[in-house]
């Protein structure tokens, strides 16, 4: 990696440090190892969601996945359900989740690539399909038994480090390697950068784009299942906030909303920044409404700063 690429991470790293200092000033113990450990744990779920989001945004052509939150909520409900509350059934539950998440992604991808529905609309429709399915299946009253092992994701391994963080790091490393080294990953950047050129260059554009939606579906639904393990109990639509947050995290991390440019690590750092921000607001005892207002305004400012078009005049 050269210096120019590292520069992309500078804003999120700086923001993290500044926020930590602000937090420490406002509330003692904020920057303690223990608190940082729990901040990172909370950030892990958003980090995984932002990895899914990055894959779709990288495809370009206004690619965006608004169904991430709904798919995660579904994973939170159906993960424990499929395992039937038994830890031994978890692997098979994860496999079945992958099939469901992959299928959702496949439908998104086909809708976008072949039916030519704008990604924004396609994935928004998917939100109500997925939520409707969950609601219909559970009749609005999810009675869910948690597999004990799943509840362990929030347990400490050593010091302030918890399993959830390790899982996020492993997913990050695997996906980052896939993006940089595999034919799929390298083609994805080219497809997002100039789709017409990629087509002419013989790259199977449809395959690449659809695969991105499928992977996003799988990673999304898994992260929902991990989230419920950390939260301890499942609710309908419990992860709906993650859609917008994941987009914000990806943008903060330097990924271009126009596609073809950005890294997974960037999105993960963005997730950390957003989580620290929330923690600071909680730590100073900000009322819920004000907190949400500040978060919303912050996202607005961030999106305006990062997405502005390059100046016309040189």
């Amino acid at each position: 990696m050269n210096k120019g690429k590292l520069k992309v991470y500078l804003p999120s790293i700086t923001a993290s440090i500044v926020l930590l200092i602000v937090g420490q000033v406002l509330s003692k113990g904020f920057a303690s190892a223990n608190n940082i450990g729990s901040i990172l744990t909370v950030a892990s779920v958003l980090a995984i969601a932002s990895i899914a989001q990055t894959l779709v945004i990288l495809t370009g052509n206004e690619g965006i996945d608004l169904s991430v939150g709904a798919v995660m909520s579904m994973g939170a409900l159906f993960g424990p359900l499929l395992a039937g509350g038994a830890s031994s059934h978890l692997p098979i539950a994860f496999l079945m989740l992958a099939v469901i998440g992959g299928l959702i992604g496949l439908i998104n991808g086909i809708g976008v690539q072949f039916v030519k529905i704008p990604p924004l609309v396609m994935t928004l429709i998917m939100v109500s399909v997925v939520n409707g399915f969950s609601l219909a299946y559970t009749k609005g009253q999810p009675a869910i038994q948690m597999p004990p092992v799943l509840l362990e994701v929030g347990a400490k391994i050593f010091g302030p480090i918890r399993w959830l963080l390790i899982i996020a790091v492993i997913i990050l490393i695997i996906m980052e390697v896939i993006l940089r080294k595999s034919r799929y990953g390298r083609s994805l950047y080219l497809v997002g950068n100039n789709r017409r050129a990629a087509e002419i260059g013989g790259i199977g554009v449809n395959k690449i784009v659809i695969l991105s939606y499928v992977l996003a579906g799988i990673i999304g639904i898994w992260s929902g299942c991990i989230l419920v393990g950390y939260a301890g109990s499942a609710q309908l639509e419990m992860a709906k906030d993650y859609t917008l947050l994941s987009i914000a995290a990806v943008v903060i991390g330097g990924t271009k909303l126009t596609g073809g440019e950005g890294t997974l690590l960037g999105g993960v750092l963005g997730a950390i920044v957003l989580t620290i921000l929330t923690s600071v607001l909680v730590a100073v005892g900000m009322p819920d409404g004000v907190r949400e207002l500040i978060q919303g305004l912050t996202l607005l400012v961030i999106l305006m700063v990062y997405s502005r078009a390059p100046k016309l005049r040189q």
Partner: peptide
């Protein structure tokens, strides 16, 4: 196929020279 409209149909503008050069032989014709 070499297009004269290189902005639209040729280059991956913000990607590196290396990626641009390798895009067909390594990713498509293998």
């Amino acid at each position: 196929f070499i297009s004269g409209d290189r902005e639209r149909e040729g280059v991956y503008g913000t990607r590196s020279i290396s990626e641009n050069l390798r895009s067909v032989k390594e990713l498509v014709t293998k």
